Amino acid sequence: MALLAPVRHGVSSVGGVLLAAATRAAAAVRPAAKPLHPSGRIRQARLYRHGLNPPLGIGFLDAPGVDEVVVRESRAVGLPQALPDVQGLALRVPIGDGAYGDLLLASTGWGKVSRFVLTVSRTTYGRPMTTLLPYRTTAGPLLLGARSVGHATVELSCAVGDGPWRHFADLRLSELDADPSVLDERGDISFDPVLHRVPGLDQYRWVERLREPAYDEARADRGES
């Protein structure tokens, strides 16, 4: 495993450069505060967490509770609705003391391998979604996943590595748009899982190296430090 660390470091660093380049290219073609996922619907939702038994040692997944959350549904490239695109689902969840954590999911497969592979769909929930890159947790590398199970209901699950999915919560989508008080001056929200983390769901250093350059580009494009 130690021999794999330099390889993983190199791959993630190169991947981060490529993601940043892709973000710059998207910004050059279509100048916007969000080069990727440029626009989306921001709506209210309620997250019903029923918990896990046996637990994984992660409070957000293990403990039952009800959270008022903000959801952003978007298309990665921003293609017309008639065309398939990589679909995105972002959740902002409260973590106490007025703070929040951001979770980002994109359309993928649901199998042991395909859960790590982006797919396209014409509709937001036409394909399953996962966080694509694993979180570092006490239980091991963990993915979150989402699947539509009916009108305005999305089932949230988690899986350690390529293990079985475990259903831990249901997301009930409202037809109401998000309260304007949670939006920025552009009438949007910038989700950032690198800066805004849910306790117990940590970033691997190689994942940070992969993501951070692209997020730096996006922040700079929005005029943020």
Score class of each variant (00 low, 15 high):
R209Q: 05
R30G: 07
A178W: 01
V120Q: 15
T137F: 05
P80W: 07
A2F: 14
S107P: 04
V14F: 07
D216R: 10
T131P: 00
A27H: 12
L210Y: 00
S107V: 07
L105Q: 00
G109M: 07
W165K: 02
P164M: 06
R8M: 08
L142H: 00
R197P: 02
L118T: 08
S13N: 03
Y48T: 08
L195E: 15
V198A: 06
L143H: 07
C158A: 14
G150D: 10
R166Q: 15
V113G: 10
Y100F: 13
L176E: 14
T108L: 03
G111A: 12
S74W: 00
W206F: 09
V93N: 07
F168W: 11
I58N: 01
T123G: 06
P31Q: 08
L144H: 02
R41V: 13
C158F: 03
T153G: 03
V120T: 15
S74L: 03
A32N: 11
Q44E: 13
M129P: 00
V113A: 14
P193R: 01
D184N: 14
D177M: 09
D85C: 05
S12Y: 00
G40M: 04
G161V: 06
D192T: 02
H9Y: 09
A28I: 07
P54H: 13
G161I: 07
G57R: 04
S39H: 13
D179A: 15
A63W: 12
W165Q: 06
P164F: 07
R197D: 04
D192R: 03
A5I: 13
A28N: 05
A27L: 12
P64H: 13
T119M: 09
L183P: 05
P80S: 14
A22V: 08
P54S: 12
L171T: 06
A21V: 13
P84I: 06
I189S: 05
A63F: 11
P31L: 09
D202A: 15
P55V: 12
A26G: 10
G65P: 10
R122I: 07
D184C: 08
G101N: 07
S225Q: 14
D102R: 03
T138W: 07
V207H: 01
W206C: 04
A21G: 14
R30H: 10
R211N: 05
K112P: 13
A25C: 10
R115M: 08
R136C: 05
K34Q: 10
A82P: 03
S39Q: 13
R43L: 09
L47A: 04
R136G: 05
L83F: 15
V160W: 02
P84F: 06
A214N: 01
G51C: 09
L4P: 03
Y204V: 01
G15Y: 00
R172M: 13
V120D: 04
V194N: 01
L18V: 13
T130R: 00
Q203P: 02
R209H: 04
S114T: 15
A106L: 14
A214S: 09
G140K: 01
F191T: 01
V11W: 02
G145N: 02
R211C: 04
S12G: 05
A90W: 05
